[in-house]
């Protein structure tokens, strides 16, 4: 164990080398996650937030590749590890949960097989003790009659139950960090609330840090300690959750927060950010948000540097809101 943050992503760039050109899916993104801390990674579809998560686990498929930056996890730069060592960390010290629980479990394998293999991939325990740990993990995520459930197949579960199983698989090796890629988006609202509650409880109990990738600011507001906002593959701003939600500095974060329908504005037209996300293929230098930004000036054609307007907050903008 080292004294620094649990995870430090520094200047990460992940590009897809396609026939049509280089797609800069993640372009200079930096953030840190402390031990037991919950970071909300927020952005629209295509902002590169999921790709950031995959990069941390080394799960980027060709033609994608991490081209630059460091991913320091507990003092080790993961990008310098060989594939076998990185595999030893995946699912063991860093686990991941995906968006669609209907798709993440293998339909032709029993639940016990799918949990036990995750245990046995990282420790040489017997099948019996791996099963005992699987059972324990199911109990922790609130699944009743775990013995019966272990022998079932995924199609015998509802969506919410499948996501609980996926969370149990993520928890089974006692990871230090869980990367959760919109795990509640595909669920209905009541189940979403339950899953959020369970995740928060389990992570607090075990001191597991969470990187919660989402486009839903209301989820982040209730869950996260810190927020990092991304736009078009680039870092926009970050800081403690209350600061960002109350006083967003970047025009994009402000637009995002304003887009959430509020209760006291019933009947009013909903607000939105004008325009569309730019194509990552044709994105030149400069602030990618300037086409849609009401504060943009000619200066925004240059890329702004990351500044620290107040302790704990970081920002990439020439014209922060006051």
């Amino acid at each position: 164990m080292s004294g620094g943050p649990l995870l430090q992503v520094d200047g990460l760039r992940m590009h897809f080398f396609t026939k049509a050109g280089v797609v800069k899916a993640v372009d200079d993104v930096s953030f840190t996650v402390g031990r037991g801390e919950i970071l909300g990674l927020v952005g629209e579809s295509g902002s590169g937030k999921s790709m950031t998560g995959y990069s941390i686990l080394g799960l980027v498929d060709p033609p994608g590749r991490v081209v630059e930056g460091r991913i320091v996890f507990d003092g080790t730069d993961l990008t310098r590890l060989d594939p076998a060592a990185w595999r030893g960390i995946r699912g063991n010290r860093i686990a991941m949960i995906f968006q669609d629980p209907m798709m993440t479990l293998n339909p032709v394998l029993r639940i016990d097989t799918q949990i036990v293999e995750a245990v046995q991939a990282h420790s040489g325990v017997s099948r019996e003790s791996a099963l005992a740990r699987a059972r324990e993990a199911l109990v922790r995520v609130g699944i009743a009659s775990p013995d019966e459930r272990l022998r079932a197949y995924p199609h015998q579960f509802s969506g919410g139950m499948r996501q609980r199983v996926a969370i149990a698989i993520a928890l089974v090796n006692g990871p230090d960090l869980i990367i959760a890629d919109e795990p509640t988006t595909a669920l209905d609202v009541t189940i979403q609330g339950q899953i959020l509650f369970e995740m928060q409880k389990v992570c607090r109990e075990s001191g597991t840090a969470l990187l919660w990738i989402t486009h839903d600011l209301s989820v982040v507001a209730g869950l996260a300690d810190k927020v990092c906002v991304m736009y078009a593959g680039r870092f926009v701003e970050s800081g403690p959750v209350a600061d960002i939600l109350d006083r967003p500095l970047h025009p994009y974060s402000r637009g995002l927060i304003d887009s959430v329908p509020a209760r006291n504005e019933r009947g009013q037209p909903l607000r939105q950010i004008p325009g569309m996300t730019p194509s990552l293929l044709s994105l030149g230098p400069g602030c990618p948000f300037r086409e849609r930004c009401s504060s943009a000036t000619p200066r925004c054609a240059e890329s702004p540097e990351v500044t620290e307007p107040s302790p704990g907050r970081r920002l990439r903008c020439f014209h922060p809101a006051r």
Binding site: L57, L59, R87, G88, I89, R90, G91, N92, A95, M96, F98, Q99, D100, M103, T104, L105, N106, P107, V108, L109, E117, A118, A121, H122, A166, I169
Partner: peptide, 26 residues
């Protein structure tokens, strides 16, 4: 391309098990 294959890799399974069990059985 299926999520369950990516999830299997995210569990830290070896390439052999991902292909030989998760892909092949499907």
């Amino acid at each position: 391309l299926q999520d369950y294959v990516k999830f299997a890799r995210a569990k830290g399974l070896s390439q052999g098990r991902v292909i030989g069990v998760h892909v092949l059985k499907n």
